[in-house]
């Protein structure tokens, strides 16, 4: 039962951070919170007797995914402050990025 309570606490945390991740205005906060959801999930997995899954979730779900998100965000923000030669064939009408 103690484990159940721990799981419920972690579950509440996950739901709260999940809602936070969706509702947050800042993308970085969203990404970090969703990483937090994964981290809590890996704790739950560990509590349930699934250490393999817990490791994987921690490494991939919360670690690597977050890194990938942050890199992708950074990469896309470059589009704002640089006129890149990355434009696709049909330049969009709002080309605010080009300076």
């Amino acid at each position: 039962m103690a484990i159940d309570i721990a799981i419920i606490v972690a579950g509440a945390f996950m739901v709260a951070s999940g809602i936070g991740a969706i509702a947050s205005k800042s993308l970085v906060v969203s990404i970090l919170l969703s990483g937090g959801v994964s981290l809590a999930a890996s704790v739950v997995f560990l509590l349930m007797g699934a250490p393999d899954v817990a490791m994987t979730e921690a490494a991939i779900g919360s670690g690597l995914t977050t890194v990938v998100f942050l890199y992708a965000l950074a990469r896309s923000r470059q589009a704002d402050d640089e006129d890149s030669n990355e434009r696709l064939e049909a330049p969009a009408s709002r080309s605010g990025g080009s300076k």
Binding site: P51, D52, A54, M55, T56, A59, I60, G63, L64, V67
Partner: peptide, 17 residues
Amino acid sequence: TPGGGFQGGVVIATAVL
């Protein structure tokens, strides 16, 4: 033990990171 190819692979990727 817990862990395996995927987890190990992520750790290696961490080094690259």
